[in-house]
Nucleic acid binder design. Structure first.
Length: 852
DNA sequence: GCGATCACG
DNA sequence: ACGTACGTGATCGCT
């Protein structure tokens, strides 16, 4: 009984489809035409051949690729558009979902994989079909291997066996390589014999059979121009032959079982098409979710009815809830929901918010029913107004969407409803939950989602609720004083400029004054004009006394507008505290962010910063601000992930890592490392974590590029494990399209497959940095969950109030101070077992400035 | 709404 | 040949 195997040239098909099909309407991050074309082609193939084995091959031949790009660039041809390149990771992900093997091998093209597989498996008991748009593949045709060539678009395939080739090209498969040797192929960078085109090449081959035979019988040809060209370009012809021949024996260690294909399963196909938002394909394959029984809706606008229902729901094991300010919606199953309209004015219908919330209080506070919600933290704030503290919040669809893909822009329920094809309100939350739960399992994101992000929601809520007390009076004094200072400097600047007819805060005006009126040299430009940033000003510092004043002006206005006046506006009058909002779904790496006010960028580096930090005080006069921060957490994470022996060694001996780095980079014993050397080494270490370049390091240190390159070279010689890590993580990321942290948090990096050098380089640096920054984020998040848990366990009243990426801030009761410090250090240090130890520094003070 | 700038890790 | 460190948010001026 014969089997069938289909092997598809992924690169060739995507290219074909992209250029053949009209562009699709752009959607947020969604694939466009090429993946669509690919999928329709795939369906056609599976339906007509019903293969038992299937694989899609991709190019992994960087040098050739770059070379081609360069050639195209020189020839002034358009570069491959980014939208095309962006389709590869999407396609790869879809293939994974569909259970179709995808193959790639560093150093080889998809062609070679097609060749090797057909060579390996085509035979009596296996018919192999090679799907491509590249006519090179004709050389692979045998009795049991056929080529399916795309024609007009991609879903229309022409089957080539030996007979059909003879019919169309009058050539045997074996002659294809020789054909290319003669005629060349510009798209593949095969030169061929200049002046010989397809017609001539076919004629020569039908006369002589092979290239070898042609050259050994060259004298049989009339001594004309053609003869001369062939004679002259013999070497080029043979080089072309080499280039045109597909390698059928590449070291592809794939077992036949890995290529097994069980057909398109409804479940995975539906998931794939939904992710792609290909609704028309869903429809065509009759895979639409049963939206037929659209969400059944029951309105509960009577308080007695609501009360009765709420009692029933208390017995449920799971309930989805959604509150949008106008109505509260509840659902036990994805096709049915209850809507409680909420009165916003005396005139409107519905039930007052007080009544609704008090009716639902027992349900919300019951530990029995697991609550499924979208943005649970916001709901916790709503409940807090009614003195309700919901329990057993088991799943947050907003946070789940973030964990599944942190680079999404929009996590609104509306967007998720579109994405998951869900309807209604709480019913939609329920439907989305059912799908996300599976996705989290499949992508092995359970640890991050259930053990970190879900418990973190309540911790962040508590921190937001608690707030950070600020000294309003001091802020007012600072505001007045800074206003005077700014006024003084403003007039000094006007005097030095010789005019007061410009706005110092306007970079446009300032540029005119500095570079036109005062004639200072232009250091760099922005898109819109002269750059006047701090880097430029520092370079101009010695050239004019106005520069120093501008730097001072900038600093003072920044501090005043953002950190004094800005902060003052966010103070809640009820408690004289600032209550930041933590955004749990903001960053690509897993960090949290802080807004209104942002308490994660309060000044600390400058001389004046202590004045600002002194404004932040404990909630009671007798309390302390305790700050505990990780020492070098990112470098320690790097040491662990890379396993670099020297770096691990340095940390295990608790050496100063920057001094150690300096000793290696500058080739001196650690005892002879100067402050300046250490500071340069510090910049090198930062650079390593960010994905270093000699240019970047040179700019940062203000040294020549060659010197920076030397530093990096010396660094990587000593820390060889880091070099290996940098290389392997990027390779891995390019294969997978994503990177993960130590605990499995995922980040897809589409930029890695870009044809644009800058875009791709950015992707490489992100691939390198994300596991480091993200692992550090995972670790401190774990500590954030554990610290308040231990406070509760010991019945402590001290409160965790802030996180600043590698630092936790606690408002501590005086009698709990020592316990608090101990819990902080112990929890943070032991949050993650690694090859190196984590180190934590802790200190306290009567203000945030003193806790250092 | 966006670019430039600058505050933080 | 290409331009360059990773991750954020707030404020200002300007279109």
């Amino acid at each position: 009984m014969g089997n069938t195997m289909i092997v598809i040239d992924g690169n060739s098909l995507i290219h074909r489809a992209f250029y053949a099909l009209p562009p699709m309407k752009k959607r947020d991050g969604a694939p466009t035409n090429a993946v669509y074309g690919f999928m329709t082609m795939l369906f056609g193939l599976v339906d007509s051949y019903q293969p038992q084995y299937m694989a899609v091959a991709f190019d992994r031949r960087e040098k050739t690729f770059r070379h081609q790009m360069f050639e195209e660039y020189k020839a002034g041809r358009r570069k491959t558009p980014d939208e095309l390149i962006a389709q590869f990771p999407i396609l790869k992900h879809t293939l994974d979902t569909l259970g179709i093997a995808r193959l790639e091998l560093a150093g080889y093209e998809a062609d070679d994989i097609l060749g090797t597989l057909s060579h390996q498996y085509a035979g009596e008991d296996m018919e192999v079909y090679l799907v491509t748009g590249d006519r090179d593949a004709f050389q692979l045709v045998t009795d049991h291997a056929r080529v399916l060539m795309t024609r007009k678009g991609v879903s229309d395939l022409e089957v080539f066996d030996e007979a059909h080739m003879q019919e169309v090209y009058s050539l045997r498969p074996g002659q294809i390589v020789d054909l290319k040797s003669l005629m060349g192929d510009s798209s593949d960078n095969i030169p061929g014999v200049p002046g010989v085109g397809e017609k001539t090449a076919v004629k020569l081959l039908s006369q002589f059979g092979t290239l070898d035979s042609l050259y050994s019988h060259l004298d049989e040809l009339p001594k004309n121009k053609l003869h001369e060209k062939l004679e002259l370009n013999r070497e080029l012809a043979y080089l072309s032959q080499k280039l045109a021949r597909i390698d059928q024996n590449i070291p592809l260690n794939t077992k036949l079982s890995e290529l097994a294909f069980a057909g398109l399963q409804d479940d995975s196909l539906r998931q794939a098409l939904e992710e792609l938002e290909f609704t028309s394909l869903l429809k065509r394959r009759s895979l639409e979710r049963e939206k037929t029984a659209a969400v059944e809706e029951e309105t509960l606008d009577d308080i007695q009815k609501l009360k009765k229902k709420a009692e029933e729901w208390e017995e449920a094991s799971m309930i989805a809830l959604h509150y949008d300010g106008e109505k509260l919606s509840l659902s036990l199953q994805r096709d049915r929901e209850f809507i409680v309209p909420i009165t916003l004015s005396l005139l409107g219908g519905g039930i007052s918010p007080e009544d609704v919330f008090s009716c639902l209080k027992p349900l919300l506070e019951s530990k029995k029913a697991a609550k499924i919600m979208h943005d649970a933290k916001a709901f916790l704030h709503d409940c807090a107004k009614f003195d309700i503290s919901p329990q057993n919040i088991a799943f947050d669809t907003m946070v789940a969407a973030y964990v599944l893909n942190p680079t999404r822009r929009n996590f609104s329920l509306e967007k998720l409803k579109e994405y998951y094809g869900a309807d209604g309100s709480a019913a939609a939350v329920m439907a989305i939950y059912e799908q996300q739960r599976k996705q989290i399992d499949e992508l092995q994101l359970g640890r991050i989602f259930y053990d970190i992000e879900m418990p973190l929601i309540g911790v962040l809520f508590d921190m937001e609720q608690e707030g950070f007390t600020v000294n309003l009076q001091t802020l007012e004094e600072l505001s007045a004083r800074y206003a005077e200072d700014i006024a003084r400097i403003t007039s000094e600047i006007y005097a030095l400029a010789g005019t007061s007819d410009f706005n110092i805060a306007s970079t446009k005006h300032l540029g005119v004054i500095l570079f036109e009126k005062l004639g200072l040299p232009v250091i760099k430009k922005t898109k819109t004009g002269y750059s006047t940033d701090i880097e430029v000003l520092e370079k101009l510092h010695d050239q004019h006394p106005i520069i120093e004043k501008i730097i001072e002006y900038r600093q003072l206005t920044k501090l005043k507008s953002t950190y004094i006046d800005g902060l003052m506006q966010t103070i809640r009058s009820a408690d004289q505290k600032v209550h930041t909002t933590f955004n749990q779904v903001a960053t690509a790496t897993g960090r949290i962010s802080s807004t209104e006010p942002n308490l994660q960028n309060i000044p600390i580096r400058s001389a004046l910063s202590a004045e600002i930090r002194n404004v932040f005080i404990p909630s009671k006069p007798e309390n302390y601000i305790v700050s505990a921060d990780y020492s070098q957490i990112e470098l320690r994470v790097l040491a662990h992930i890379s396993g670099d022996a020297h770096m691990c060694d340095a940390f295990l001996h608790d050496e100063d890592i920057h001094t150690r780095t300096a000793a290696e980079v500058f080739d001196v014993p650690p005892s002879e490392v100067t402050a300046e050397m250490r500071s340069s080494a510090k910049a090198v270490n930062f650079g390593i974590v960010y994905g270093i370049s000699d240019f970047g390091l040179a700019r940062n240190l203000g040294i020549p590029r060659y010197k920076a390159a030397e530093y990096i070279k010396k660094y990587l010689e000593e820390f060889d494990g880091v070099r290996t890590y940098m290389h392997t993580i990027v390779e891995q990321a390019k294969q997978d399209g994503y990177v993960r942290t130590l605990w499995g948090r995922i980040r897809y990096i589409d930029e890695l497959s870009s044809s644009n050098y800058n875009t791709r380089s950015f992707g490489e640096r992100a691939a390198l940095n994300t596991p480091i920054q993200g692992t550090a984020a995972d670790i401190i998040k774990y500590a954030m969950i554990e610290v308040p848990r231990r406070f509760r366990e010991k019945n402590l009243q001290s409160k965790l109030i802030l996180q600043v990426h590698d630092e936790l801030i606690v408002d501590a009761e005086p009698e709990e101070l020592e316990q608090v410090k101990k819990i902080l250090v112990d929890t943070m240090q032991n949050a993650c077992k690694m090859k190196v130890t984590l180190k934590v520094n802790v200190s306290e003070g009567k203000t945030w400035a003193e806790a250092k």
